[in-house]
Each structure stands twice: as structure tokens, then as C-alpha cells.
Design a protein around this nucleic acid. Structure first.
Lengths: 224, 224
DNA sequence: CAGGAATCGGAAACCGATTTCCAGTTGACG
DNA sequence: CGTCAACTGGAAATCGGTTTCCGATTCCTG
């Protein structure tokens, strides 16, 4: 992760403070919180932040490195879970919750897995672990055989969409979504339908943007 | 819809051109296309656009008025469909497709249903129609009894999240999502799972932002 | 503890977008 | 056809954010 250990002592300290401030702010406000806000919170100048992290994405990736590592560990756990179906479900539930709880997580997740940097290897590992997980779950007979890896992408994106709900309801919606989908993935789901987590008392008019900042594409988009 | 008919002839013409330009651009580039681009395309100055539509949301709502109307008509159709389950499914499928095909649709949809303007009445009508639709589908025994209205919100938001996929895959993902969910909603789904539409060959690293512009919260959101 | 390189932070330039301003144009009406 | 209010478009002010610049400061080494 290119952690430069050859920084001067004060610089290293500042760097750490930046990362910490960014972690907080990403979590609560999303990844598109202004860099100047992060700098202020960290007690450094914007230039310092910019010098350490030339792009927002670099900062995002760095900040969530540990969370991604956790995610990878969980993936390993899941793959080696004695019960493949349980492993599968546990991983999905972890990602689901993390996505809702931490507004920056999805971005970090994506950044990690799509970075052109030295991530190729890690990504390939993760992908093959996922394939193994899915394979095992299918072989156990519990996961439907036509389940596709892309369905995981689907799930991450769909669940990510729920962050636009009013924050107090996002969890409920997300849990229901997951329950519905797991039922559909599960070849042995009870025929009448599985019990669902409680629903929010939400009308159509609540489908509006709910929370604050929205992760957003940066850069090239406007210029076309 | 406060269509001011008391405009001077040329002003009315310009207004129409703005709406038309905006329709095109919203569809293909999303609602956050710069106002100046819309103005240029419409062949008017930015000031003119701004004079007619003091906020972006006003323009969005106006532009999609007809689509929303179409949506409402479909809702009526759905409610009166001889087969409640078919009606339910058809409405969902319509919204699903529209959301993916038309980058502005979700925003318009939301704007319509959450506007403080004279929409209350329309919204209430729509909501009670939806309730009726759901009720009928449940009464027919096909829709699971614990289905909640908020599950529709869930569906709209989740499906909206899929617009972040690479555009060439968004439809596939969205169709799979809907198939999975309909299976989960359906009390009579075949026990082994319903057949699914084809999956995209998509790895985790494709979970990145795919298209260009992203609809984005406007205005008040950040200030809390 | 002195010198020099690394680092700092705030000011300023920049950027894309929104909003306002105003001198000029155009359509409506007598 | 002349008048005038409505309307126009482009230029300029503003805004929130990013990126660069540079004189001052801090740490490290000898």
C-alpha cells in the first residue's frame, strides 16, 4: 500500500491525523466531503493533505485499507466455513451492514477492487475466493445453480442505492432486501416465503434523497 | 402544473425549446447536466432558462410531467387489471425499465412525489392506488401477505443503485434483480426457483461507477 | 547548535457551475 | 407604425470546491 515509512517524523504524524480525520468524516458524511474539511479537522493545511494524497481516491483507499482487509479476512472465513451456505450468508450480511453503516465503505470497496495500482493481485485473490465460496455453496445444494458472480455486483449496487433512503430507514430497507434476495437464492427456502425483518412505515414520498452527501463521480464526467 | 399561458409568444416558444432540450439531455446524461448545456442546446441564453425555471427541480418536474402522467395511467391500468398479480408485475416491470433506460426518470419520479407544490393531491391518489394494487394482489393470494408498501420504495431505490453499473450491463443486472425479487414476493413461485434472465459476465471490479453523470442530491441536503 | 532539506499552512489561482445584471431587441397593442 | 413592457443573451459576479505557489517553519544530520 505504499505506506511511505521514510517520512519525517512530523510529516508521518500529520499523515496519520489526516487519515483519522478522513475516516471519521467519510463514515458520517460520505466520501465526497470537501478535502478542506478533512484538512481542517486534521489540523493541517490543505496543501499538506494534497501533498500526501494527490487524489481523493488515494485517500479513500488508504483510509479503508483496514476495513478492506477485514473484509478479506471475512471472505476467507466464509470460504472455509464448515457450512458453505452459512458462510455465504454471513459474508453477504457483513457487506450489507457495512455498506449502510459506513457511507464511505462502498466507495472504498470499489476503489480497492478497481484500482489500477498494485491491487490486481489482491483483487484476483478475492475474486477467486468468491468464486470458490459460490461454488461451494452451489455444490452444497443450497445456493441455486444459476446464481452468477455478477449477482454479487448486483447486490452491492442495489444495496448501495438504499443509502439514499432517509437514514433512519435505510437499515430496515436493506435488511428486507437482503431477506428477500436470500430467499430467492436459497433452493431450500420455505415454500410460503421466509419470515421478514420488520418493514419501515414508509410511503412513496419517502423515496427521496434522505441523508446528506452522496458519493459522486469525480472528474471527467462533465467534460463531454 | 402552473403552465403559464400568459407568456409572450416568443417566450412560450423558447420555453418549449428548453423543455425539449432538457428532456433529451436528462434522458441521456442524467439530471445533473449543467444548465448552461441545456441552454445552449435549446438555443437560448442561460438567463432565459433561469428566468423560466428558477430551480433545477422545477425543470425536472416539468420535463417529466408527461412521463409521470404515463406512470399514473399505468398505475390505474395495473389496479384494474383483471389479474391482480399480473397488474402488480407489469407496473413493477415498467418502473424498473424506465429507471434504467432514462437516467432522469428516478429523479423526476421522486420530485413529483415529494414536491411540496400542488402535488399533495396527486401523490395521495397515487399512494392509495398503490395500496389498492398491493391489497388486491395480496387478496388474490399471489402476493405474500407480509409485503409492505415500503418494499416498493426499497425496490425503486435498489434498482436505482444499479444505474451505477457499466451502462451495457445495467439492464441485465436490473432484470435479474427484479426476477429474484418477484420470486420472493410470489407465494406461488416454483419451489426450486424461477428461471432467471441471463446474467452479465461481470466481475467484482465492475462494481465501479459505470456511466457518466450521476444524479445527485441538490440543495438542502449538505446543510445538516 | 548550525545548515540544509523536507515539510508546513495560508493565500491565491483556478475551475465548472449557478445566479444576477443590464443594455439591447422584439412582440403586442393602440 | 410607434411605444413600451416583456423578453433576450452575453458578460460578469458569485460560489464551493480543488490545485498550485511560496515564504516561513521544523526536523534531521553532522
Amino acid at each position: 500500500m505504499a505506506e511511505p515509512t521514510d517520512l519525517r517524523a512530523d510529516a508521518a504524524r500529520n499523515r496519520a491525523q489526516i487519515v483519522e480525520a478522513a475516516r471519521d468524516l467519510f463514515r458520517t458524511r460520505g466520501v465526497d466531503v470537501p478535502l478542506s474539511t478533512i484538512a481542517r479537522r486534521a489540523g493541517v493545511g490543505v496543501a499538506t493533505l494534497f501533498r500526501r494524497f494527490p487524489s481523493r481516491e488515494a485517500l479513500v483507499t488508504e483510509v479503508f485499507a483496514e476495513q478492506i482487509a477485514h473484509c478479506e479476512a471475512l471472505l476467507d472465513d466464509a470460504v472455509t466455513d464448515p457450512d458453505p451456505w452459512t458462510g455465504f450468508r454471513r459474508l453477504l450480511e457483513f457487506i450489507r451492514a457495512e455498506q449502510i453503516e459506513d457511507r464511505g465503505f462502498t466507495e472504498a470497496f470499489i476503489a480497492s477492487f478497481s484500482g489500477d495500482a498494485g491491487y490486481r493481485r489482491r483483487r484476483e485473490d478475492a475474486e477467486s475466493a468468491l468464486e470458490a465460496l459460490v461454488r461451494r455453496a452451489k455444490d452444497s445444494g443450497r445456493l441455486r445453480p444459476d446464481f452468477a458472480i455478477s449477482d454479487l455486483v448486483m447486490l452491492v449496487l442495489a444495496n448501495g442505492g438504499l443509502r439514499d433512503a432517509p437514514p433512519e430507514h435505510a437499515h430496515d430497507l436493506s435488511r428486507r432486501l437482503m431477506a428477500y434476495l436470500l430467499q430467492a437464492f436459497d433452493t431450500e427456502a420455505s415454500p410460503g416465503g421466509v419470515p421478514l425483518p420488520p418493514a419501515s412505515p414508509l410511503g412513496l414520498h419517502h423515496a427521496r434523497r434522505g441523508a446528506g452527501d452522496r458519493p459522486e463521480r469525480r472528474g471527467s464526467a462533465a467534460g463531454r
